[in-house]
């Protein structure tokens, strides 16, 4: 009888135990990840404001209609999101390629340099933004002081649309370039040197080698980096929120000049407690992110491989 029980236990172990081991992940993800995201769609069809009590009135697509046809703040936020997406993603990938190329030489103290480029990535987004907000300060910021030193005028970084986007993009690029550089470096090291030797024999200079060999060979990593950078950069929130902290932080500047879509979601949801409207913004931002990610995937795929 005892062996029979052990036999049964063994069979259970083989057949069902694996599901028990993977179940916690799927369970927790379903409850705290997937369900809220899907439920956002249901909330977005309601007029639901926490300040009016907990009542919810079904309004169909009214929130979406309002956002798409009658809300200039929404389109302003979407425009800022797209502008920041370009200003962050393109320099990030380009600089990362350049830095990886530098790190791919035979260098002394290479661990120091590799850790150095990753340092920005381990600092918190809140700390980074506050530090840069000080550096970009109008009156006492170091950056304006340097600009004046070189004879250029002071810039009120927060005031303008373009200048505030440049400042915010600087923070994002600073924080993420090193991470992507290490990803590129790893793949560069996997390229066999015989490929470069052959190119050198054909008379290709280092610039040509970079564009004809390195970049095409790094295609999968460039696609990967572009896609994850895009997914992150379409949802910037901490940087625009803390660039101009204070009572009106959620508006992203006095004229909403740097309010991103994620920040507009935050403003509607957690400054005005308009949950229905904020949920509609979340879904529209989701759709926009999927579209833009697809677009950047296609763009990165255009890198030629021979």
């Amino acid at each position: 009888m005892r062996t029979d029980w052990r036999e049964r236990r063994h069979r259970w172990d083989i057949r069902y135990a694996p599901y028990a081991y993977i179940a916690p992940y799927f369970l927790l993800f379903a409850v705290f990840g997937l369900f809220p995201l899907l439920y956002t769609a249901w909330v977005s069809l309601h007029d639901r404001n926490l300040l009016d009590g907990d009542s919810a009135t079904f309004v169909g697509l009214e929130n979406y209609a309002q956002l798409l046809t009658a809300d200039p703040y929404f389109w302003n936020a979407m425009g800022n999101t797209l502008s920041l997406w370009v200003l962050t993603t393109v320099p990030q990938i380009a600089l990362a390629l350049g830095i990886a190329q530098l790190l791919n030489r035979r260098i002394r103290t290479r661990t120091l340099f590799r850790m150095g480029v990753l340092l920005p990535n381990i600092t918190s987004v809140a700390a980074v933004t506050i530090i840069f907000a000080q550096l970009f300060g109008r009156d006492f910021g170091l950056i304006n002081w340097v600009l004046e030193l070189f004879g250029a005028g002071r810039i009120d970084w927060q005031a303008g649309t373009a200048s505030s986007h440049v400042a915010i993009a600087t923070m994002v690029v600073w924080r993420w370039t090193g991470y992507h550089a290490l990803i590129f470096l790893a793949s560069m090291q996997a390229i066999p040197s015989s490929v470069y030797e052959a190119a050198r024999l054909d008379g290709a200079n280092s610039w040509q080698q970079f564009w004809r060999i390195t970049v095409p060979m790094l295609r999968p990593q460039i696609i990967f980096s572009t896609v994850i950078a895009t997914a992150g950069n379409m949802r910037l929130l901490a940087e625009p929120l803390l660039f101009n902290p204070g009572a009106a932080a959620a508006t992203g500047g006095s004229d909403r000049q740097f309010q991103t879509a994620a920040l507009y979601l935050y403003e509607q949801g957690f400054a005005k407690y308009d949950f229905g409207y904020a949920s509609a913004i979340a879904w529209l931002l989701l759709v926009a992110t999927v579209l833009i990610t697809g677009l950047s995937y296609l763009a990165a795929r255009r890198i030629r491989t021979d």
């Binding site: 705290f32 369900f35 956002t40 879904w283």
Partner: peptide
């Protein structure tokens, strides 16, 4: 179902769960 479930895990990595912040807060 091992490989299908593994693929599902990889796919969930791409789900922007941050955008579900409103219902998560309500929960």
């Amino acid at each position: 179902g091992r490989s299908a479930l593994m693929l599902l895990v990889v796919a969930t990595q791409a789900v922007p769960t941050e955008l579900g912040v409103i219902p998560l807060y309500m929960m």
